[in-house]
């Protein structure tokens, strides 16, 4: 079985999630005894495309069409379907980032492929084709068996470590027969926080709750985040009260994140909050109430006043990192 990996990128710059996806595709192809092809849509530079081989891509297909420089589910899906047909791939892999989450089920429906959204492990292929994914907002796992000939898998970010293994890949152009109707989505503007690792990709996150008392107190969390090289998040009441912007809100109705380290400060640990963060590898809780439910979900904890604990923790981090 051959594998096609959809590679997301931002104006030609490839991020970790792209390497994770190639690596997953390469390992899956090796297991299934097939080849792995990476698909890149829109402008990207030739050397960067060939370098995807380092992470395991044997071939890179490139659709160099300026209309694809902005993501658009329908047009992207057409290109992916064309690439699946050309390569004869039976498995499509992509990152479960914002673009991948929109694209994968759209393509799956068009190919009548079975979908596993948010895989946390490699496929088990001894008896059918089964992939483990997280369900019930991180409270359980499900083993999803694909009953269709074609399979589409999206990968939970920050789950599969990319490793460098190969050399340069051959880059081949793919031309797709688009029509105007494929481009019904027009880019208007974007608003991106500059110079900060996005929450969904962050390996470390410092998060504040109502225990922080007010937006004027976020300075100590910013200092801690800076020392740890972490991204800021918050609980829902904090975003609802406009202490912090909505994109920082994590939990059941906010973002779902899976960093290596999640530091929760002045957050009680309501089940709806945990739903968004409980897959974090290590959780540190700072709360003045020893009975706060978050301690049950934590690996490390400090019972104490945030306004005293956080600056001391920041100092300790700086000292250890020689900052």
């Amino acid at each position: 079985m051959s594998v096609l990996v959809f590679i997301d990128h931002n104006q030609g710059s490839f991020k970790k999630n792209a390497f994770e996806a190639i690596n997953y595709g390469a390992q899956t192809a090796a297991k299934l005894g097939g080849t792995v092809t990476a698909l890149v849509l829109g402008a990207a530079n030739e050397a960067d495309l060939a370098a995807l081989g380092k992470y395991g891509a044997q071939q890179v297909l490139h659709v160099n069409d300026a209309r694809l420089n902005h993501f658009n589910t329908k047009a992207y899906a057409k290109a992916v379907v064309a690439a699946v047909n050309q390569t004869g791939a039976q498995v499509l892999v992509c990152s479960a980032n914002n673009n991948g989450k929109a694209l994968a089920p759209y393509v799956a429906a068009q190919l009548k492929a079975g979908l596993v959204a948010g895989a946390v492990d490699y496929p088990q292929t001894d008896n059918g084709f089964t992939v483990k994914k997280s369900v019930f907002s991180g409270k359980a796992f499900a083993y999803v068996t694909v009953n269709a000939d074609k399979k589409v898998i999206t990968l939970t970010p920050n789950t599969f470590a990319p490793s460098e293994q190969g050399g340069a890949a051959a880059v081949n152009a793919l031309s797709v027969d688009f029509s105007d109707a494929d481009f019904g989505v027009k880019f208007v503007s974007e608003n991106v926080v500059k110079g900060e690792v996005p929450l969904s990709e962050a390996e470390r996150v410092v998060s504040g709750g109502r225990g922080m008392k007010g937006p004027e107190n976020w300075g100590i969390l910013e200092d801690l985040a800076k020392a740890m090289d972490a991204t800021l998040a918050c609980s829902r009441p904090v975003a609802d009260a406009h202490w912090r912007p909505h994109h920082e809100h994590v939990g059941q109705t906010g973002g779902t994140i899976r960093p290596n380290l999640y530091v929760a400060v002045g957050i009680s640990g309501a089940i709806q909050h945990l739903a968004g963060v409980n897959s974090s590898k290590t959780i540190v809780v700072i709360n003045k109430d020893a009975e706060a439910p978050f301690f049950k979900a934590a690996d490390y904890g400090v019972v104490g006043d945030a306004f005293e604990v956080v600056p001391k923790l920041t100092e300790a981090v700086k000292k250890a990192k020689g900052l």
Binding site: N10, K15, H70, F71, N97, N98, N99, G184, V185, K186, F187, V188, S189, E190, N191, V192, V193, E196, V197, P198, L199, S200, E201, H247
Partner: peptide, 11 residues
Amino acid sequence: EIEGGEETLAV
């Protein structure tokens, strides 16, 4: 939502 922010589209 896009990674790290949002984009606006006319559809």
